[in-house]
Amino acid sequence: MEKSFQIDNLSVKIYGQTKEMGAAAADYVTRKLKDAIEKKGRANLILATGASQFSFLEALQTKEIDWGKITVFHLDEYKGVSESHPASFRKYLKERILNKVAPKKIYFLNGDAPNLQLEINNYEEALKAHPIDIACIGIGENGHIAFNDPGVADFKDPKLVKVVELDEACRNQQLGEGWFPTFADVPKEAVTLTITAIMNCKAISCVVPDERKSRAVYNSLYRDISTSCPASILRTHPETVLFLDKGSASLIK
């Protein structure tokens, strides 16, 4: 680790290499899961997707964790996208970790459910029944957490799950990461956990690599806590660690 410091309640840890960053986040998440299992015999976990999570998920699946005692939720999904679509987050999580570790129970957000409102209601009830011990998230290039882009983010959202419109910066990020062939192919809407749902989690691991995220990281740490940069709210959470690599931390003095 190159540097560690705190801003408000937020712990920030900077690593020289992306792989080192991912391994450190996996260590932190593993400790939180084991603590929960030791205290109550089970743990509840939220996992994120996207290119930012590659190194973390690769490291997490190598840890000695009793996955048979863990219930997993995921953070968001495109509206109308089937699980077989290359960009599906359900497909991503199954292929990158869940099929390999076999958790006790998995709750997926089915963005193509025939009755989407019923799907959202059921997911909210499942979240209420399983208080989350640790959420694993990232920060988007526009400062979003989950799909709570600046235009739809609400720090006092009464909902835990909702359908949102994706802004142009968010959709360009999905295109730039290679999930879709053209901008027109990127969905305009998604189903997402709200900021309320994320902030309700007992602990949060936020993994943010790459220089393209450096401006969003800077704004999250040093600008006003505001929905213009939704991730800035993480500075108010009592147990959040932000894991950065050299690229994403490049604007930090």
Score class of each variant (00 low, 15 high):
Glu239Val: 05
Pro150Glu: 10
Val241Gln: 04
Asp185Met: 07
Ile134Pro: 03
Ala113Glu: 12
Gly143Arg: 02
Ser82Glu: 15
Ile225Pro: 06
Leu60Asp: 02
Ala36Lys: 01
Pro230Ala: 04
Lys34Tyr: 03
Val29Arg: 06
Lys156Gln: 04
Arg31Ile: 08
Val81Phe: 09
Asp27Thr: 01
Ala36Glu: 13
Lys105Arg: 15
Asp35Leu: 02
Met1Asn: 05
Ala197Ile: 05
Gly16Asp: 14
Leu45Phe: 13
Thr49Tyr: 08
Leu118Met: 09
Ala26Phe: 05
Leu242Val: 00
Asp112Met: 04
Asn148Ala: 05
Ser11Cys: 03
Asn99Cys: 05
Pro187Cys: 11
Ala43Glu: 07
Ile233Met: 02
Lys188Trp: 00
Ile233Tyr: 10
Arg235Leu: 10
Lys213Ile: 07
Ser88Ala: 11
Phe147Thr: 00
Ser226Val: 00
Lys39Ala: 06
Gly143Met: 05
Ser11Met: 14
Lys159Trp: 03
Ile46Ala: 04
Asp167Ala: 10
Glu124Met: 03
Lys69Glu: 04
Ser226Pro: 00
Ser228Gln: 07
Phe180Lys: 01
Leu33Glu: 03
His74Phe: 09
Asp224Ser: 07
Met21Ile: 03
Lys104Ile: 06
Val163Met: 02
Phe180Met: 01
Lys3Trp: 12
Arg212Trp: 02
Asn115Ala: 02
Asn9Asp: 15
Asn172Tyr: 12
Cys201Phe: 15
Leu47Phe: 06
Asn115Ile: 02
His74Tyr: 01
Ala102Glu: 13
Phe147Arg: 03
Asp27Arg: 05
Ile7Ala: 09
Ser220Phe: 03
Lys94Thr: 04
Glu64Gly: 01
Cys170Ile: 14
Phe108His: 07
Tyr28Glu: 10
Asp133Trp: 06
Leu75Ala: 15
Arg96Thr: 14
Gln17Ile: 09
Glu38Ile: 09
Ala87Thr: 09
Ala216Val: 07
Thr71Ala: 04
Leu47Gln: 08
Leu160Asp: 13
Ala153Arg: 13
Tyr218Ile: 03
Leu116Gln: 09
Ile233Thr: 05
Val164Glu: 08
Lys100Ser: 13
Ser232Ile: 14
